[in-house]
Design a protein around this nucleic acid. Structure first.
Lengths: 327, 327
DNA sequence: CTGTTAGCGCGTTCAC
DNA sequence: GTGAACGCGCTAACAG
């Protein structure tokens, strides 16, 4: 591991000169620069970012905290973040909170000790007061996908309400009157907004809300399966079901495949987010698509601006548009 | 951001004492410790890991480099790594190589500058000579899922050959004689091993290899679709097809759903890795399951041992068992 | 048991 | 245009 000193010695200059060359300081003679550059290449010298960070107080590292890693949706967001911040030489420490507040607290402390320049988090629960701690330490925080109660901060979300509203409206216009609902945990703001969109759409068309065809899962596959089962086993099942996210959509579809005679396909599905395959299966008629990669990119841009002291109104709540996609 | 000095001043001790308290140095009087601990809590002091790293030459950070982030398989591995190394206070910088050597080179340099203690990589291509650079700099490297040519290192893989062999054998015993194959890019060692397993199984049962029903995709959904299409549009399509990974399995299944009359289900599928849904669809009869999370955990353990100078034969090539799962 | 000293590798004055 | 000197926050070596 050659250091600046090694390069300096070999080039017959001081370490400050090496530092200047590394940082493209203009007031350095071409000859010296060339000589130093050559020695840098010869020795294979690379700045030690740790040492640099200590001096400059910037780590060029940001944290990404989400409830779980093996989740396509979260990781698509991560991908967007990496794409965007990678351009500026940032790297990303990825942490899983395991869906708990304790997990989040632990990870946040860890990230703070690592001197991250900023943090992007997908809240695991509806509670966000513990984020305040790191924010007070002057680390910019950007929420993604969901808001958190008790914590006001920059956030990048999608238009859950309108997306859902339009999807339901579309089904109503197709003549559907009895539309069931499989939602997510209402503690999560995105789940709540989708819920609101569903109810508001029915209300707008003077359709009575029927609580017996409204079920709440946890955004995971199994709950999609079991909730769809509950719906279908009623004496008067809905003719169409809205499902609030992709994983529950998979589970619900699984139930339908296993329990529907090939001829009927009585039930249709409307869903937030689709998955491969699902569209070929014939159950799903309409999908609300969200710009997942964009969520990451936008959050990264926002964080970048905050880290670099860009003057923006606070907080920035950015809503990205969803898109109604008919299959 | 309070520092050790602040705590020291407040507790009326020196910074080394604070440091000792932080590091649980036993030779420190209970009274002093208590006083210092109290001041630590009062000030909200946390070690600056950057400064610590500079001194100790350990960052307690490892790198995880993989071809893409929005990939369930890779991220399941990442999850395993985080679970295991998180126990020891490590965090993980996640980078995407975008499937290219240049991407890998870039990221590796970045990670080196960040002074990672070790690196786990899922090779993007069959070429691995560029990993040598960081290994020569005394950073332990562990490969996951695939090997890379021109680079000998620790690796955690699954038993691709046997897994495939047994799956094919099972089908042969079920009376299947004409078994097609949709493989991955043979540049990847895991794809090659699965290929060998397929061929060897046919050979063992004296079944002639028929190149017209052997196709190669790229492990992504679209290629699964198009290769299955090619197979099915032949005059004499296979009655059973082995598919070498989950994403191609999804694509292939998609083709079958869209092009198979509900009554027939003429073709059956055997696959490496299943996905939700796929098992309910009736096409897939046998799946070779790999312990994905375990790959990550095992790679992390191995890396941990290397980082901590554990004496182990070099290189360690660990093969995890796959499991034949009938649906 | 605890304080003093030195230095990790770099960037940044401030001289020259 | 370049070098010497200092300090970022911490830990390790040596005293006492």
């Amino acid at each position: 591991m050659p250091t600046a000193r090694d390069v300096a010695k070999q080039a017959g200059v001081s370490t400050s000169t090496v530092s200047r060359v590394m940082n493209h300081d203009p007031r350095i003679s071409p000859e010296t620069r060339d000589r130093v550059v050559k020695c840098i290449e010869d020795t294979g010298y690379r700045v030690n970012q740790i040492a640099r960070s200590l001096k400059t107080n910037r780590s060029y590292t940001i944290g990404f905290l989400c409830p779980e890693l093996s989740n396509d949706f979260f990781m698509k967001i991560a991908e967007g973040i990496e794409m965007e911040l990678g351009k500026y030489g940032y790297s990303m420490v990825v942490c899983s909170s395991n869906g708990t507040i304790q997990g989040e607290e632990e990870r946040i402390r860890l990230l703070y000790e690592k001197c991250i320049d900023g943090l992007i988090v997908i809240p695991a629960t509806n509670s966000g007061s513990h984020y305040q701690w790191i924010k007070d330490l002057r680390i910019p925080v950007v929420l993604a996908d969901r808001l958190a109660e008790g914590f006001s901060a920059d956030a990048v979300l999608v238009d859950n309400f309108n997306g859902t509203y339009l999807a339901i409206e579309d089904r109503i216009r197709q003549g559907e009157r009895r539309i069931g609902y499989i939602g997510g945990d209402l503690a999560l703001t995105n789940a709540r907004e989708r819920d609101d969109g569903y109810r508001k759409a029915l209300e707008s068309y003077s359709i009575q809300i029927d609580d017996s065809i409204i079920k709440y899962g946890d955004f995971h596959t199994e709950s999609g399966y079991s909730k769809m089962k509950e719906l279908m086993q009623q004496e008067n099942p809905p003719g169409c079901v809205f499902i609030a996210n992709r994983y529950m959509h998979v589970g619900a579809t699984k139930y339908l495949i296993e329990n529907t005679a090939p001829s009927e396909k009585a039930v249709s599905i409307v869903s937030f987010d689709d998955l491969e395959l699902v569209s070929s299966l014939g159950f799903c008629k309409v999908v609300v698509r969200q710009p997942t990669l964009e969520i990451g990119i936008t959050a990264a841009k926002l964080l970048y601006d905050r880290v670099n002291g860009e003057i923006l109104p606070y907080p920035q709540i950015i809503r990205l548009k969803t898109e109604l996609h008919k299959i």
